[in-house]
């Protein structure tokens, strides 16, 4: 069963087709990358998949369940986790508490008013592990506002992982990062590859071609090609539409 299937997904803003009949799949264990020039509608598409933006037409299935009309939090409970292009963290919380918040999103017994959230050994263990996975163990008591940009991006991924996802949507995880920070994230994504099905939206071509199993090219809301990285590199239409004037 595919982790993610979209059929003819459409989003209009006024008269503009931001998402133009997009059909794509993410297979189990696959890393499917989406590239495309600025304004191609990548973030809109991610928003539609996550449920933050309502689709006008088409359908979205996650792990065989139709989620087209499902609210965001229910999709997340199905196992769909995402990161944001612009970091979305609880700024006043510590790094650990951000991850704990993510861990607790999976807990069935979260509507409790009494016990101290920090005294839940199981949840704390999971949160610590997620921080360790992205290499932020040393900063678990640091307040998020004080973290460097790259560290905040790593934390984004840690939070997504802490929800024990069955599908990861990564919206430009390398955005605004230095060379060093980027390579840390790339090797992190490499280590996650195969463990989670991932849909990766990214600008950094080198990263995409190094990581992806398949690449889709999105131009003006439309997928003009989906293929292996090697073939995408050679696709004339893609070169003309995108690679020609960028990479």
């Amino acid at each position: 069963m595919s982790a993610l299937v979209t059929r003819s997904l459409v989003k209009r803003f006024g008269g503009v087709l931001a998402t133009d009949h997009v059909s794509l799949t993410v297979e189990p264990g696959e890393l499917h990358a989406i590239i495309g020039p600025n304004g191609a509608g990548k973030s809109t598409l991610i928003g539609q998949l996550a449920g933050e933006i309502a689709s006008d037409e088409g359908s979205v299935h996650v792990l065989g369940t139709d989620v087209t009309h499902m609210p965001t939090h229910k999709r997340a409970q199905l196992g769909l986790a995402r990161t944001y292009q612009v970091t979305q963290l609880a700024k006043e919380f510590t790094a650990l508490d951000n991850v704990l918040l993510a861990v607790n999103a999976r807990a069935a017994h979260n509507f409790r008013f009494w016990g101290n959230a920090h005294h839940d050994a199981g949840a704390m263990q999971k949160a610590t592990t997620a921080l360790a996975t992205v290499g932020l163990s040393h900063l678990h008591q640091a307040e998020v506002g004080t973290l460097a940009h790259g560290e905040q991006r790593q934390l984004e991924i840690a939070m997504a992982l802490a929800t024990e996802p069955k599908l990861l949507l990564l919206d430009e995880p390398l955005a605004g990062m230095s060379q060093g920070e980027s390579s840390a994230i790339i090797s992190l994504l490499k280590s996650l590859k195969g463990r989670y099905p991932m849909l990766l939206v990214e600008h950094d071509m080198d990263a995409v071609f190094a990581l992806a199993d398949r690449v889709s090219v999105l131009v003006y809301g439309r997928i003009i090609a989906t293929d292996t990285p090697d073939r995408i590199r050679e696709n004339a239409e893609v070169r003309a539409a995108y690679l020609g004037d960028g990479a």
Partner: peptide
């Protein structure tokens, strides 16, 4: 409490809290 953690997150970043599944 765990409830309070989520409540404070709804103040700090409701969008993220929702996307996590709360």
């Amino acid at each position: 409490s765990p409830f309070g953690l989520v409540l404070r997150a709804t103040k700090s970043n409701p969008r993220r809290a929702t996307a996590l599944g709360h």
